[in-house]
Design a protein around this nucleic acid. Structure first.
Length: 841
RNA sequence: GCGGAUGUGGCGGAAUGGUAGACGCUACAGACUUAAAAUCUGUUGUCCUUCUGGGCGUGCGGGUUCGAGUCCCGCCAUCCGCACCA
C-alpha cells in the first residue's frame, strides 16, 4: 500500500472533477431504462459570487443525487441561472455596465466556483433565463395562457416615487420613502397584466392534500395564503332603496353587533362622494401615502372618515349605520367593504373606540352576556349568541347558518366562498426581464405577438442614467405595426415578474428542444421533480406560482403533470458570529482574533465586541467566501461541514473550529483507508455494526437527515479504529468509504483508487451502494432499564426476546432495585419486552 | 397587524411516550516530540457525597400517564414570511 500520508485536495479535487467531466459521469440519459430520480435545488440568482447558503443547498442535493446513482437510478441533477432581476439594473446604474454583461460575467464566475465543489451536475442542461432561447419559449407559453383566457389586464396599485417619477419595488421603499430620492412614496394605479391564479385557488388548495412529502408548515402556509373562507355577501341598502354597499363577512353571526360600515378609499362609493367633497378627497389622498405591502397597510394607524352617509341594517331596516372610509379596508379583498362589529373584532374595536361608536356584545363570554362591552380587547373566542333577538342562545355556527339562510330567502345576501388569494400581477416596469409579447393597437386593442415573430428580444442599446424603464424611452423598441391591422401601434414595454421565469425552469431542464418550450413526452418521463430543495423563504410565492403555472399548462393540455414537486425540503440559513469595534462599526471575522474570552482587532490591538450570530450578510461583514475556504481546506472538508451537526432544516453556524474539525476528519478517513491489512477472520460485532450503519446512513440520506448520517459515519470510524485487523475490518473500511463517498467524493475516489488493485478499479461514483445483510443486523443481547416508580435504578444486559416473567424476576433480584423498593408494597410491574421494567409502588 | 416556526450541557445537536445528552466542537489532563504542529489516550450538565452512590435537570407554569424532551392547556423569548427582493 503506497498511501500518501495526507490527502491533498489541492491536487485531487481538480483531478477528479476533470475525470468526471471527461467521462460525462453525471449526464442524464433521457432514454435510460433505469428508475429515474430528478433531484433539483432552487437555481441561484447570479449575484456575482456563490455564498455559503448556496454551498449548503447544493451539497445536500448533491449527496442525494450521488446516493441515488449508487442505488441504481438514472439521475437528473441540473443547474441553471435565475438571471433576470433588479440587482442587474442597480449594477448598471451604479457601475455603468450593461445588465446583460454584468449578469453573464457573474454566471461565468459562479459556475467556476460551483465546479470547484465537485457537484455531480449535468452541465449539458445548463440554462439562463435571461437568454432569448429561454425567455422566447416563456413568451410563447404566456401567449398560450392568454389565448386560453388565463391572462387579463386591470388597474392595480404600485409604489410611486414622485421625485424620481418611477415605480419602486417594495424592497426599494424604506420607512415609506423612496430609497434613492428619499421622497415619501405614494400608491398609484397602473394598468397591468394579471394571471388568473384565483381560477385555480380551490385546485391549489386541494392539491396540497396530495403533497405528503412536503413539510407540514409549508402546506399550512400555502393553505393560509390561499385563505379559503365561507361567509355571507350581503347588501346594506341606502335608505330610500337606491342601491347600497355590498359587504362580505365571515361572521354573519355577529350581525346584531354591527355599529358601522367601512369602505376602502378606492371603493366606487368613496370615489363618487369625493368628487364633491374636498375634505374626503384629501383623506383619500392621505390613505394613498405609504407603501403597498400588507405590513405597511395593516400596521398603519387605523383612520377613518365619516362620509355622513348611512345604510340600513339588513336585518332591521329601521336601524341605520354610519358609513366610513377607512384606511385598513382593502379594495382587493372581498367587496372592498366591511361591516364593523367592534365587540368581536380587534380592528373594529380599535376603530370604534377611536371614533366613539357603539360597542355591543353579541357573543357571550362565560358570565358576560350584558350588551355593554368594557375594555379594549375584542372577544373572538367561542360562546353563545346574546343580545341578538331571535338568535339568542344559538351557537356561533347555528347563527351563521341562520343568517345566511334568511339572507338567501329574503334575497338580500348569499352564502359565498371567498379566497384571500389574489390574481398574480406579472407586469414590471423594468428593463431586465422577459418582454411581455403584446402589441397595443388603437383599433385592435391588445394583440399577441405572432408566433413567427417570437422571441421579442430585449434591445441591447439602453441607458440607465435616468430613473424609469429604459424600454419606454428606447427609440424603436416600442414602435411596431399592429400584426392584425398593420397600423402603427405600440409594443408593451413592461416585462414579466421574474417569478414567471422560475415557474417552469424545471420543465425546461427535463427537456430543452430548440423549437418549443419542451418536448412533452421527455418532460413527462422526468417530472415531477422527485426532490426539490431550497430556502424556506420561497415557501409561499415561488412554490405557489410554480404549482399554478404547471397546473395552467396542464389545464391547456400542454403537459400531464399537476404537481411539479413531489417532495420538498426547505433548508435553513448559514449564520456566523458578528463583530463590532468600540464605535459599533462591523468587523469581518478575519479582522479579529480571540485571546481567552476577549476578542481583539488584529491590526490595532483594540478590543472588539462579539455580537449576535446572524444570517451572513455583506452589510454586517459576517460573510465567508466559499472560494477562500475551498482554497484552504478543499471541497470535501467544506462539503462535510455543510452536512454535519445542524439538522438541514435549521440554521447552520459557520465556525473556524467547525471547519478545522471537518478537515481533521477528512484526513482521519484517509488514514483509515490505508489500514486495509489483508488479515483473515471475522469480527462478528464489527460486521453487525457495519451493517447497522449501512442501513442507517441510507435511511438518513433518503430522509435528508445528513447530520445523523454523518454522526453514524463518525461512530463507525471510531469502532473500526479500535477493532483488531480482520477481514471484517477490511470490509468495514471499504464500506465506510462507499458510505461517505456522496459527501466527500474527491477523497473517496482517491482512496478508492488506492484500494483499486484489490477491487478491479472503476470510479467510486459508479460503484453500487453496499447491500445490507438483514441477518447481520440482529442483536442477540439487549440492555434493559429497570425503573422503580419511573426512576432508573439499574440496567441489565439480557438475552434478546427474554420472556416477560424472567425480565420481572431479574429486575426484582437486583440489589439496587431492592434498596429502592425498601420493603414497600409493589402495586404493579410494567414490562416492555427488550426495553425496560418499571416497578410501581 | 396577519401567518409560520424554534427553545435540550460551554457550543452544534441525538433520543418509534420507555436508560436524556449519541456524534461532533471547545476546554482540561496525559502520552509521543529537543520543541511545536499533527496524532493518540482520558475527563468534560449540575449540586451533594463516607467515592459507593444520591438529589436536581430538556425556556416558564399547569395537566394526562406506571413513565413526558416527546402528548394536552396557558405563558415567555427569539427567528422567518406577508403578494414589485430573489
Amino acid at each position: 500500500m503506497s498511501n500518501e500520508e495526507r490527502f491533498n485536495p489541492h491536487v485531487a479535487d481538480a483531478r477528479w472533477q476533470n475525470i468526471w467531466e471527461e467521462r460525462s459521469s453525471f449526464v442524464a440519459d433521457d432514454n435510460s431504462t433505469k428508475p429515474r430520480a430528478y433531484v433539483l435545488e432552487m437555481f441561484p440568482y447570479p449575484s456575482g459570487r456563490i455564498h455559503i447558503g448556496h454551498v449548503r443547498n447544493y451539497t445536500m442535493g448533491d449527496v442525494l443525487a450521488r446516493y441515488k446513482r449508487m442505488t441504481g437510478h438514472e439521475v437528473l441533477h441540473p443547474m441553471g441561472w435565475d438571471a433576470f432581476g433588479m440587482p442587474a439594473e442597480n449594477a448598471a446604474m451604479e457601475k455603468n455596465v450593461h445588465p446583460g454583461g454584468w449578469t453573464r460575467d457573474n454566471i461565468a464566475n459562479m459556475k467556476a466556483q460551483l465546479k470547484r465543489l465537485g457537484f455531480a451536475i449535468d452541465w449539458t442542461r445548463e440554462l439562463a433565463t435571461c437568454e432569448p432561447e429561454y425567455y422566447g419559449h416563456e413568451q410563447a407559453l404566456f401567449l398560450k395562457l392568454y389565448a386560453a383566457g388565463l391572462v387579463y389586464r386591470k388597474e392595480s396599485a404600485v409604489n410611486w416615487d414622485p421625485v424620481d417619477m418611477t415605480v419602486l419595488a417594495n424592497e426599494q421603499v424604506i420607512d415609506g420613502k423612496g430609497w434613492r430620492s428619499g421622497a415619501p412614496v405614494e400608491r398609484r394605479k397602473l394598468s397591468q397584466w394579471f394571471l388568473k391564479i384565483t381560477d385555480f385557488a380551490d385546485e391549489l388548495l386541494t392539491g396540497l392534500g396530495s403533497l405528503d412529502q412536503w413539510p407540514d408548515k409549508v402546506r399550512l402556509m400555502q393553505e393560509n395564503w390561499i385563505g379559503k373562507s365561507q361567509g355571507l355577501k350581503c347588501t346594506f341598502r341606502f335608505p330610500g332603496g337606491n342601491g347600497g354597499i355590498d359587504v362580505f363577512t365571515t361572521r354573519p353571526d355577529t350581525m346584531f353587533g354591527a355599529s358601522f360600515v367601512a369602505i376602502a378609499a378606492d371603493h366606487p362609493v368613496a370615489q363618487k362622494l369625493a368628487a364633491n367633497a374636498p375634505d374626503l378627497q384629501a383623506f383619500i389622498e392621505e390613505c394613498r401615502k405609504g407603501g403597498t405591502t400588507a405590513a405597511d397597510i395593516e400596521t398603519a394607524e387605523k383612520r377613518g372618515f365619516d362620509t355622513g352617509l348611512t345604510v340600513e341594517h339588513p336585518l332591521d331596516a329601521s336601524w341605520h349605520l354610519p358609513v366610513y372610509v377607512a384606511n385598513f379596508v382593502l379594495m382587493d379583498y372581498g367587496t372592498g367593504a366591511v361591516f364593523g362589529c367592534p365587540a368581536h373584532d380587534q380592528r373594529d374595536l380599535d376603530f370604534a373606540r377611536k371614533y366613539d361608536l357603539p360597542v355591543t356584545r353579541v357573543v357571550g363570554d362565560g358570565d358576560l352576556t350584558d350588551s355593554s362591552f368594557a375594555g379594549d380587547i375584542a372577544f373572538t373566542g367561542p360562546g353563545t349568541i346574546v343580545n341578538s333577538r331571535w338568535m339568542n342562545g344559538m351557537t356561533i355556527d347555528q347563527a351563521k347558518a341562520d343568517v345566511i339562510a334568511r339572507a338567501q330567502a329574503e334575497g338580500w345576501g348569499i352564502g359565498q366562498t371567498q379566497y384571500r388569494l389574489r390574481d398574480w400581477g406579472v407586469s414590471r416596469q423594468r428593463y431586465w426581464g422577459t418582454p411581455i409579447p403584446i402589441i397595443h393597437c388603437q383599433t385592435c386593442g391588445a394583440v399577441p405577438v405572432p408566433d413567427d415573430q417570437l422571441p421579442v428580444t430585449l434591445p441591447e442599446d439602453v441607458s440607465f442614467d435616468i430613473p424609469g424603464n429604459p424600454l419606454d424611452r428606447h427609440p424603436s423598441f416600442s414602435k411596431v405595426d399592429c400584426p392584425s391591422c398593420g397600423q402603427p401601434a405600440r409594443r408593451e414595454t413592461d416585462t414579466l415578474d421574474t417569478f414567471v421565469d422560475s415557474s417552469w425552469y424545471f420543465i425546461r431542464f427535463a427537456s430543452q428542444p430548440h423549437d418549443k418550450p419542451f418536448d412533452r413526452t421527455v418532460a413527462e418521463k422526468w417530472l415531477p421533480v422527485d426532490q426539490y430543495i431550497g430556502g424556506v423563504e420561497h415557501a409561499i410565492l415561488h412554490l405557489l406560482y410554480a404549482r399554478f403555472w404547471t397546473r395552467a399548462l396542464s389545464h391547456i393540455g400542454l403537459i400531464d403533470v399537476k404537481e411539479p414537486f413531489a417532495s420538498l425540503f426547505t433548508q435553513g440559513m448559514v449564520t456566523h458570529q458578528t463583530y463590532q469595534d468600540a464605535k459599533g462599526s462591523w468587523l469581518s471575522p478575519d479582522q479579529v482574533r480571540r485571546e481567552g474570552d476577549i476578542w481583539t482587532i488584529i491590526d490595532s490591538g483594540a478590543q472588539a465586541v462579539a455580537g449576535r450570530i446572524e444570517k451572513m450578510s455583506k452589510s454586517k461583514k459576517n460573510v465567508v467566501d466559499p472560494d477562500d475556504i475551498v482554497d484552504q481546506y478543499g471541497a470535501d472538508a467544506v462539503r462535510w461541514f455543510m452536512l454535519s451537526d445542524s439538522p438541514p432544516e435549521r440554521d447552520l453556524e459557520w465556525s473556524e473550529a467547525g471547519i478545522e474539525g471537518c478537515w481533521r476528519f477528512v484526513q482521519r478517513l484517509w488514514r483509515l483507508t490505508a489500514q486495509v491489512s489483508g488479515a483473515d477472520g471475522a469480527d462478528k460485532a464489527l460486521d453487525r455494526k457495519t451493517h447497522q450503519v449501512i442501513a442507517g446512513v441510507g435511511a438518513d440520506i433518503e430522509a435528508l437527515a445528513f447530520n445523523k448520517a454523518v454522526a453514524k459515519i463518525y461512530d463507525l470510524a471510531n469502532i473500526i479504529e479500535k477493532a483488531a485487523p480482520s477481514a471484517s475490518r477490511d470490509s468495514a473500511i471499504r464500506t465506510i468509504l462507499l458510505l461517505s463517498s456522496p459527501m466527500v467524493p474527491h477523497l473517496a475516489e482517491e482512496a478508492w483508487t488506492q484500494l483499486g488493485a484489490e477491487l478491479g478499479g472503476g470510479l467510486i461514483a459508479d460503484a453500487a451502494w453496499p447491500a445490507v445483510d438483514p441477518a447481520l443486523l440482529e442483536e442477540d443481547e439487549v440492555t434493559i432499564a429497570i425503573q422503580v416508580r419511573g426512576k432508573l435504578r439499574d440496567t441489565l444486559t439480557v438475552a434478546k426476546g427474554l420472556p416477560q416473567a424472567e425480565m420481572e424476576a431479574l429486575a426484582l433480584a437486583s440489589q439496587k432495585v431492592q434498596i429502592a423498593i425498601d420493603g414497600s408494597d409493589i402495586k404493579k410491574i410494567i414490562v416492555v419486552p427488550d426495553r425496560l421494567v418499571n416497578i410501581v409502588l
